[in-house]
C-alpha cells in the first residue's frame, strides 16, 4: 500500500470500542506519526496504532511481534508504548529515519534488512528453546544458542535504545521518572 503524500489526520482520543480514552492517549504521550489502520492513514501515537491494529509497511507482523517481545523484555513498557509501530514507521521513512541505528553503523537504506535479521534471529533462537525472557542476558554476552543474525550484543544495544526512546525518551517518560521535560519548543509529536 503506497503511503499518501498527505495523510488523513485524526486527533481521535475518545473511546473506541471501549479501548482508548483521552486519558489513555495522554498517558501514552503524543508519539504521533502516520500509520495505516484499516486502510486509512491516521496520525496517532504508536501505542494507539498498535491498539488499533496498524498495518505494517516494511516488516511483517510476525517480525514486529518478535522485536516487540524482545524490546519489552529489555525495557518493560516498550510493547505497550508501541515500539513495533515506531520501528516500522521509521523504516518506512527511508532516508528520514530517526532510528538511533544510523549513529552506530546502520545507515537508513540498510535498516530494514538489519531489523528484519534481528527479528528472524530472535524467532530462530526461540524456536530452538531459548525463552524471550532469557535472551537479554545471553545476547549481552553473545552467547545465544542458535543465534543467526547481527552480533547479538550489537542488536541488543540498538533495539534497547529504540525501546528507551519510546518508553522513557518522551515527556511522559520524563514525568514518570520525576524529571521536568522543560522543552524550549515542544515537538508536534514525540517523533
Amino acid at each position: 500500500m503506497a503511503r499518501p503524500s498527505v495523510s488523513k489526520v485524526t486527533t481521535t482520543t475518545t473511546a473506541r470500542d471501549g479501548q482508548l480514552t483521552r486519558r489513555d492517549t495522554l498517558r501514552m504521550g503524543a508519539l504521533c506519526a502516520s500509520f495505516c489502520i484499516a486502510g486509512d492513514w491516521l496520525t496517532t501515537s504508536p501505542a494507539q496504532a498498535k491498539a488499533l491494529g496498524f498495518t505494517p509497511q516494511v516488516l511483517s507482523s510476525q517480525q514486529l511481534a518478535q522485536l516487540a517481545a524482545l524490546a519489552d523484555a529489555l525495557v518493560p513498557g516498550a510493547a505497550e508504548a508501541g515500539v513495533d509501530a515506531y520501528i516500522d514507521a521509521q523504516l518506512n521513512a527511508g532516508a528520514d529515519s530517526m532510528l538511533l541505528a544510523k549513529y552506530v553503523g546502520v545507515a537508513p537504506p540498510d535498516q530494514a534488512g538489519f531489523y528484519g535479521a534481528i527479528a528472524d534471529a530472535v524467532a530462530h533462537a526461540v524456536a530452538n528453546g531459548t525463552a524471550i525472557k532469557d535472551l537479554p542476558a545471553a545476547m549481552l554476552t553473545d552467547s545465544v544458542p542458535h543465534w543467526q543474525g547481527p552480533p547479538a550484543s550489537y542488536a541488543l544495544f540498538v533495539l534497547r535504545a529504540d525501546a528507551l526512546d519510546v518508553t522513557w525518551g518522551t515527556d511522559t517518560g520524563y514525568a514518570a521518572l520525576g524529571i521536568p521535560y522543560h522543552a524550549h519548543i515542544m515537538p508536534p509529536s514525540s517523533w
Binding site: M98, G169, H182, H184
Partner: peptide
C-alpha cells in the same frame, strides 16, 4: 524541537 529523537 526539544527531543533527542527529533534531534537526529
Amino acid at each position: 524541537w526539544s527531543s533527542q529523537i527529533w534531534a537526529r
